[in-house]
């Protein structure tokens, strides 16, 4: 078979990547623009980064976003992992299909609906909108992503490992903490990363459920852009892109390395 690159393949790859990355590239390039006019290049400068960091309201928003993301990702990871455990372990209860379907539904639910329904709930129970409500909202929608990621790992998890731990005298709790959790840890971590980035860049749901003093970075950016794009915003967005990209790259490298280690170990065993 010809494994070379045909002109057709090259064209489609170039077009695909261009479609995906040119907008981001433009954003990054213009964040280093010396000019105040966003679309006119006037030489290289990092002054907009300095300006962005000097802008207290932007820094505040970033700080809010970061705290919301950390807290909501952590709680969503715990709840999502528990849901995944229940769904893979107790496969015989009545209404299981309904239950597992309901876990997946928020994945495809329009964000506007999720945001609006949560808003109605908070209003109905008389909860003041602020950081807590944003965190709760983020937990609600990112939990199911965690559940899906962890569940896909648990499906291939050998139950006899847990049984072996119990057979050797570990209580169910200890068996989970000492055997199951360390083994599924990479997928739990991947779930956390996913929840973290989802929370980081969410605008719609935060918009609905936020209150005074709890403006997240996406909300701040969006409201500023309505008054016109400034190079400062470009700088903030570039930082955001860098943070997310770093997270994704670190996760995939660590997963890749784990996989390589496993393969090397298996080769070693085959030679033994």
């Amino acid at each position: 078979m010809n494994r070379g690159w045909s002109p057709f393949n090259i064209t489609s790859v170039v077009l695909g990547f261009a479609f995906l990355y040119i907008p981001i590239l433009i954003l990054i390039v213009y964040s280093f623009n010396a000019s105040k006019l966003v679309t006119v290049w006037a030489g290289f400068s990092i002054k907009w980064y300095a300006e962005a960091f000097a802008n207290q309201s932007l820094v505040d928003a970033a700080w809010v976003t970061f705290r919301v993301a950390i807290v909501s990702a952590s709680i969503a990871t715990i709840l999502g992992t528990l849901a995944a455990l229940a769904l893979t372990r107790y496969t015989r209860f009545h209404g299981r299909f309904l239950f597992s379907g309901m876990i997946y539904a928020p994945l495809v639910m329009p964000e506007v609906i999720t945001g609006l329904s949560l808003l109605l709930l908070f209003v109905a129970i008389g909860m003041d909108r602020g950081m807590t409500t944003v965190i709760l909202a983020h937990i609600t929608f990112s939990m199911c992503f965690v559940a899906v990621v962890v569940q896909s790992r648990l499906v291939s998890f050998d139950r006899s490992l847990e049984e072996a731990a119990m057979d050797l005298g570990a209580t169910p709790t200890r068996a989970f903490l000492q055997v199951t959790l360390p083994i599924i840890a990479p997928s739990v971590f991947a779930g956390w990363m996913l929840a973290f980035t989802l929370s980081l860049d969410d605008l719609v749901i935060a918009q609905f459920n936020s209150g005074p003093g709890a403006t997240t970075l996406p909300m701040k950016i969006f409201s500023q852009v309505r008054l016109g794009v400034t190079p400062e915003i470009n700088a903030v967005c570039t930082i955001l892109v860098a943070v997310v990209a770093t997270g994704v790259i670190v996760t995939s490298i660590s997963l890749k390395r784990q996989e390589l280690q496993r393969q090397r170990a298996e080769q070693l065993a085959a030679q033994a």
């Binding site: 050998d158 006899s160 490992l161 049984e163 072996a164 055997v179 360390p182």
Partner: peptide, 13 residues
């Protein structure tokens, strides 16, 4: 009572 499992069930970590 202790059991030796068919899959060995060795803790991989």
């Amino acid at each position: 009572v202790n059991m030796m499992f068919q899959s060995y069930a060795l803790f991989p970590h």
